[in-house]
Simulated scan of single mutants.
Amino acid sequence: MRYPQGGGLTAERRAFREHIRMQAAELFALGHDNAAIAKQLRVSVRSVQRWHQAWEHGGTPALESKGQASRPKLSEALFEVLEQELAKGPVAHGWPDQTWTLARIKTLIGRRFHKTMTLSAIAQMLHRHGFSHQVPARRAIERDEEAVTGWVKETWPQVETPWRRSGPGSASKTKPASR
């Protein structure tokens, strides 16, 4: 299962799972068997056994949701500061061009907030806040369209391997002729 928000469940999904645990608590109070509860709620017997043990020690409150598994590394206030820093551009932070990369953002977070994050966590955080991968709106001024067209027509076909063989092949991975 892929989780949104870079880990953990959505609030709706947490509430749904808590509702199932509360149904199980009602059935525990009525004295139902763990296997019967698991079948009725369509969950594993092991989960019901864990819930039952928690219910016996702490009652129904022990089955309530504890909230998100982890908090984000950057709070909303820190993310606003990060947004302001990103708006200044990479050149203002010492990079030679105006391209933000995940590695550069990771370095900026480390310098500014003294926190470390993985590149994927940074990408998920940015996506959560509405950022997306962007392609430059304009082509470089130095771009030579004739050279690009010539390279695509002449050089690329020689570099690219053909998708299909000209002769018959084999689906066998063990047959040397199929490679």
Rank of each mutant, 00 (worst) to 15 (best):
P4Y: 10
H93W: 15
A140G: 07
L108N: 02
G169Q: 08
W51P: 00
R14L: 07
A77N: 11
Y3C: 06
R71S: 06
V81W: 08
A62D: 01
P168H: 15
R2N: 13
D144A: 09
V45S: 02
L86I: 09
T60G: 00
A62H: 00
E142S: 12
T174Q: 06
P72Q: 11
R46A: 13
A137G: 07
R112N: 08
L126W: 04
W95C: 04
W55H: 09
G67A: 10
L30R: 15
S172H: 07
V148N: 12
R112L: 11
Q68N: 11
S75C: 12
L41V: 09
Q68R: 15
R104A: 10
L126R: 01
E26F: 02
R42Q: 15
F28V: 05
R21Y: 05
Q134G: 07
K88W: 04
K73M: 09
E142D: 09
L126H: 04
A36R: 13
G110K: 05
R128F: 00
S70T: 14
G59I: 03
T155D: 13
I37Y: 01
S44F: 10
S47M: 10
R164N: 07
E80Q: 15
G8E: 02
S47C: 11
H32A: 08
I122R: 05
S65T: 09
K73T: 12
D33H: 08
Q5S: 11
E83I: 07
Q68S: 10
H57W: 05
T116V: 05
I122M: 04
A147W: 09
W95T: 05
E12P: 00
I20T: 12
W163I: 11
R138L: 10
V45H: 03
S120R: 15
W55D: 00
P4R: 15
L82W: 02
R112P: 03
L82H: 05
L126Q: 01
M117V: 03
P61A: 07
R14C: 04
Q68F: 04
R112K: 14
E56F: 02
F113E: 02
